[in-house]
Design a protein around this nucleic acid. Structure first.
Lengths: 107, 107
DNA sequence: TTTTATTATCGTAATATTGCGATATTATAA
DNA sequence: TTATAATATCGCAATATTACGATAATAAAA
């Protein structure tokens, strides 16, 4: 036990859940908010700004990258992380579509 | 370790993350979709419909209730679960507000 | 080349989540 | 009252997540 039984759900349900899951951590919310506040891309002031260890921040960034919300470019010896606005908009749309189709027909 | 350090984030970040987290499981997505598909409220065809044990479904329902997305009423000896549309709309609004304010000002 | 700075990855400990059988609990039916 | 049916809760095993120190990898600077 302890494993999510993904095989009994369809792809749309699993993908939607995966996306929600990755947004379901305050550090990742904070990272996204901080990156968007800067008018330039972020490297790792995040470690100081947020107050988690460098390894931890790096791990959270990796997860955000895994659903395509962030893209990173090498900039000298640091990394420059950006929100992928196209991907961001697609996800927002999917998510609203879930909300709009699901709330109807309720008692 | 292993604990999310909620104390270093603000209330808005923690609440948003909590909300996303609860939606971050395919069974809970499937439950919401199934409930909304019925024009009457649901009791526990969910167990047959979804294919998880009764105890497991009950647990997922509890979590959905914890963020106010579902409300349950006793109906005879069974339970009648509904989506709380007001709460649903509030959460959708918060979510869009997060998406809209966060995507701007990116490089 | 050697140093330094930045980020990624590995390994591991602590805690959380998922899932389920067993057992309460609650409310109708007999 | 005694069954029966539906749901909730408890306790546990398996797995996942979170966090971090240590260390590797990479690239500029000395």
């Amino acid at each position: 036990m302890g494993v999510t039984k993904t095989q009994i759900f369809d792809q749309q349900q699993n993908e939607l859940a995966q996306f929600f899951k990755i947004l379901g951590h305050p550090a990742r919310i904070a990272i996204l908010q901080y990156i968007s506040k800067q008018n330039t891309c972020i490297c790792n002031d995040l470690v100081e700004e947020i107050g988690l260890a460098q390894a931890t921040i790096s791990q959270h960034l990796k997860e955000l990258k895994s659903i395509g919300l962030l893209k990173g470019e090498v900039e000298g010896k640091s990394m420059c992380y950006c929100i992928d606005v196209d991907r961001w908009n697609v996800l927002q749309k999917n998510l609203n579509s879930f909300f709009n189709t699901t709330k109807t027909n309720c008692c």
